[in-house]
Write a protein that binds this DNA or RNA. Structure first.
Length: 851
RNA sequence: GGGCGCUUAGCUCAGUUGGUUAGAGCGCAGCCUUCACACGGCUGAGGCCACAGGUUCGAGUCCUGUAGCGCCCACCA
């Protein structure tokens, strides 16, 4: 530690206001949080923090979670680790597209040519001007840059100790290059494949959606009981469906193989009502005899179960819903449909073409009713329906070509990775496991959108104009990142785009998780020597809602690409709940904007509130706790001011000067606190650290400072005075540093009153190894408290004199009191103390006659 | 349907391996205009630790079950 300065710099009226600006600038100027690029693997502590979606606004939940990461960063930095603490922005993807559309009043039309002179109207009107993909991406880049500055300002105010030179964004050329390289390597290793398959599809966003982006929503539905006529036999089979509009895509009826009601019907056929298509009755385990009539209509595709039946039972394909969510034309005379009355079927279907799902449903129900195929009246129910988490209409399943990462065949290995990872809190491990166990499709990473990382592939066009998707053209690694919609593949010229003998670019972009799953590789500069020292990272910080997306996908990429975990620890933050204990979300309108809270209470105060939130535990917004945090910060100012007013500048105090039993006992307690706090921090239990340190500190202020006040002023022998002052100096130094990760601003302020350099690169306190003494502190505090109680009961000032104090208690307690009698008498204004042995500690106070 | 978490003072929450009389803060009440701190301090009241069984000398803590709340996962006709 540098030598103490010759004089202390304690202001007359210390304040917690304005510390953020003052120290934020100094930290930048001094490079306090700069990563040491020479650091070795052994000393590096690398942190992977979530790149927040730039299109939204940061809410208090972000502040909460990022504070937790910062606590760990600051602790390990003080422990001597070389902390690699970058921050990223997730600026690619759908949310940004939406925000740009609204902000600038544009929409992307990839068929348009680039207009270098295009300027959007500001503010945007209602109209949406179509612009080229390149123009659109430029606007995305422009707006995200603005948003990122605002985010950065908030993080700085909050006091995140990140190294801003390590900032990254997921749409940057660097991130795109990493993302494309990782994709090409997966392709090389056959870990990713393109497939034309039924895909979950959002009809509004017109893009595929992955399993991880699904959510169930309870929606009202209507059961319709529909009769199918048997073929070659008398009678009908009745099914129940909530999606009668899909009758035209019916390919089978399915029952459970052991259902006695239908066992004899398996492998017979029926005709669909209205369309007269002959479909088989088949058996499958998934058919639930309890549901509806026990026999279901299989359509291509009504839901994911249909996909399973279709695949397992090798059923026909009659997909009719298009990418826009409307019924596409089809001809029932086509042998694939095999209608017994194509003319009638086409007449019926003609009324559905171009209709949305809800419109078609009404039409089909009416027709069924007229045809006498609707049995009874429809029954209203509520049932879960799959939605894209950002979508507004139920997902459809359409057949399209998509890129998939092979996750299913690595299920066991991925489960093992989950076991290998150290989870904080431990129970969050279950979330990951149940997700991996429940995977049922490979990870779809392609999106039919514009602002994202393009797939770095082109497809050759043969002389007859056919696109050959099976033999993609790849860029060389040195050319990455590429945009196949504007760059030509190696060996081709741009003029050959779309021409026979030429090429076309892959039109899709990667899902945002396909890029953010590489956050360690992006932030750590995969491909450089530095990355080898950083990877795997030491800590991943995130909220529990993205375990199935970000955490899972990052584990997949590291497992496939590096045969490793991406990080060794994950710290999972809980949610921030509003005062009614509801999850904060923008859509509910209860999201709390953090900046006003930070300005009102101060960054340290907000961090204090966040730091009390245990890992994985949901925590309510509580301004009361922030006020407590602010008060704690003020107390640290004042206690520091007091101590520095008693000790000498330029003096290096040592534990061997501490001779008074009370002082030595305090330092023994402090050693225990340091040991406990260090252990808790190393186990990521930051909240307990704060709780313990805070409790010790308040006791230190309320009792110890009061007890040694007079000695600290200089009363008593030289040794007694020196003992008190040394204890104050040593305790203050340790306490300031114990608080530093939590309250970085106020601790920096008070540290610099008497120390050179930043507290945040000062060493974490070590125990002073003070030899144990006879216990003194606890007994003295108990008596002091009793004296205060008596005075309070007597309604006199705490300064009121005590003429005589009679203490009875066990001999060892009395011994303890005698060891610190002068201090006790000073703190309690006690003239004389009488001792008497007794079974329990009891005090009798005789107040002095007030003058 | 499977899983996880929670249930302790009016409120928000601690109670690590079972061990004296269950803790903190806020709020509330009373007192103190203290020479570090009124952006204070001191003191106090307030709890069948969700419920029912069990293990144990001893259970807020361990086991079983029940209920309520929240979340995750699920093939949701």
């Amino acid at each position: 530690m540098p030598d103490p300065p010759p004089a202390f710099r304690v202001p007359d009226a210390p304040s917690v206001d304005g510390l953020e600006a003052r120290w934020g600038e100094r930290w930048d100027a001094e490079g306090v949080y700069r990563f040491n690029r020479e650091a070795t693997k052994a000393t590096i502590y690398a942190i992977d923090t979530p790149p927040p979606t730039v299109s939204g606004s940061l809410h208090l939940g972000h502040v909460f979670s990022y504070t937790h990461g910062d606590l760990m960063a600051r602790f390990f930095r003080m422990r001597g680790r070389d902390v690699f603490y970058p921050v990223g922005w997730d600026d690619n993807g759908l949310p940004t597209e939406r925000r740009v559309q609204n902000y600038y009043g544009v929409r992307c039309d990839p068929t348009l040519p680039y207009d270098p002179d295009f300027e959007p109207d500001e503010p945007a009107g209602e109209a949406r001007t179509p612009v080229s993909r390149r123009n659109f991406v430029e606007l995305c880049t422009r707006l995200t840059a603005i948003d990122e500055e605002a985010f950065k300002g908030l993080w700085r105010f909050l006091g995140l100790s990140v190294d801003w030179s390590l900032e990254y964004s997921t749409i940057s050329p660097h991130a795109r290059a990493i993302s494309q390289r990782a994709f090409l390597e997966m392709l090389e290793r056959d870990e990713v494949y393109a497939s034309v398959a039924p895909t979950l599809w959002d009809v509004d966003f017109q893009t595929a959606v992955s399993q991880a982006e699904l959510e169930d929503r309870e929606r009202p539905g209507v059961y319709h009981r529909v009769a199918f006529a048997r073929v070659g036999a008398e009678g009908t089979i009745e099914i129940e469906t909530t999606r009668p509009e899909l009758l035209a895509s019916c390919v089978a009826l399915v029952c459970h193989p052991e259902d006695p009601r239908y066992a004899g019907l398996v492998n017979t056929t029926v005709h669909t009502p209205l369309f007269g298509v002959e479909v088989p009755i088949v058996a499958h385990e998934l058919a639930d005899p309890q549901k509806g009539s026990g026999i279901a209509m299989v359509c291509t595709f009504g839901d994911t179960t249909d996909v399973t039946w279709w695949r397992d039972l090798d059923l026909a394909t009659r997909a009719l819903i298009g990418r826009d969510g409307r019924f596409a034309p089809c001809d029932f005379a086509d042998p694939a449909y095999a209608s017994v009355d194509p003319a009638a079927a086409n007449a019926h279907y003609g009324e559905l073409v171009g209709r949305s799902v809800t419109q078609a449903r009404a039409i089909v129900v009416e027709k069924l009713r007229e045809a006498g195929a609707l049995v009874g009246e429809p029954r209203e129910i509520t049932h879960p329906v799959k939605f894209y988490e950002k979508g507004e209409r139920p997902l459809e399943i359409v057949t399209s070509r998509q890129w998939f990462v092979r996750t299913l065949e690595h299920r066991e290995a991925l489960l093992a990775r989950g076991e290998e990872l150290a989870w904080h809190p431990e129970f969050m491990r279950h979330r990951y496991r149940s997700w991996v166990e429940g995977l049922n499709v490979d990870w779809n990473i392609s999106r039919q959108r514009f602002f994202g990382v393009p797939f770095p592939l082109w497809y050759p066009i043969d002389e007859s104009g056919e696109v050959d998707v099976d033999h993609p053209l790849r860029p060389t690694l040195a050319d990455l990142p590429v945009d196949p919609s504007s760059d030509a593949p190696p060996g081709y010229a741009e003029a050959q785009r779309g021409q026979p003998g030429g090429f076309v670019g892959d039109p899709d972009v990667m899902d945002t998780w396909a890029t953010s799953s590489l956050s360690p590789q992006i932030a750590g500069h995969w491909g450089t020597e530095l990355f080898e020292r950083l990877f795997p990272f030491d800590l991943r910080l995130q909220a529990h809602e993205i375990i199935r997306t970000w955490l899972f996908s990052t584990v997949v990429r590291a497992h496939l690409g590096h045969d490793s975990l991406p990080f060794t620890n994950v710290l999972v933050s809980g949610w921030v709940l509003d005062p009614e204990r509801k999850k904060m979300s923008k859509s509910k309108g209860n999201a709390v904007t953090p900046l006003p809270l930070l300005e009102r209470h101060g960054a340290d105060a907000v961090r204090y509130w966040a730091a009390l939130g245990r890992p994985g535990t949901d925590t309510a917004v509580d301004e009361g706790q922030m006020k407590v945090g602010r008060r704690l910060a003020i107390k640290i100012l004042n206690a520091s001011k007091f101590v520095l007013g008693r000790i000498e500048p330029g003096v290096d105090y040592h534990a061997h000067e501490v001779t008074a039993p009370l002082d030595r006992d305090l330092l023994v307690q402090l050693d225990a606190l340091i040991i406990e706090a260090t252990g808790l921090f190393e186990r990521y239990d930051y909240a307990r650290v704060l709780e313990r340190v805070e409790a010790f500190f308040w006791g230190f202020c309320d009792d110890y400072l009061e007890l040694v006040k007079l000695r600290a002023y200089g009363e008593g022998t030289v040794a007694e005075v020196a003992s008190a002052r040394a204890t104050l100096a040593l305790a203050l130094s340790s306490l300031q540093r114990l608080f530093a990760p939590f309250l970085p601003y106020v601790t920096e302020e008070v540290w610099r009153w008497w120390r050179e350099g930043s507290i945040h690169v000062a060493p974490w306190p070590e125990p002073l190894a003070v030899a144990a003494v006879e216990p003194t502190y606890a007994a003295v505090r108990a008596v002091l408290e009793a004296v205060r109680r008596e005075k309070s009961t007597a309604r006199v000032s705490q300064r009121a004199g005590v003429a005589a104090l009679s203490v009875s208690g066990p001999a060892e307690t009395l011994e303890a009191l005698r060891r610190a009698e002068a201090d006790l008498r000073a703190a309690g204004s006690i003239e004389a103390i009488e001792y008497a042995e007794g079974p329990e500690l009891a005090v009798a106070v005789e107040l002095a006659v007030s003058s």
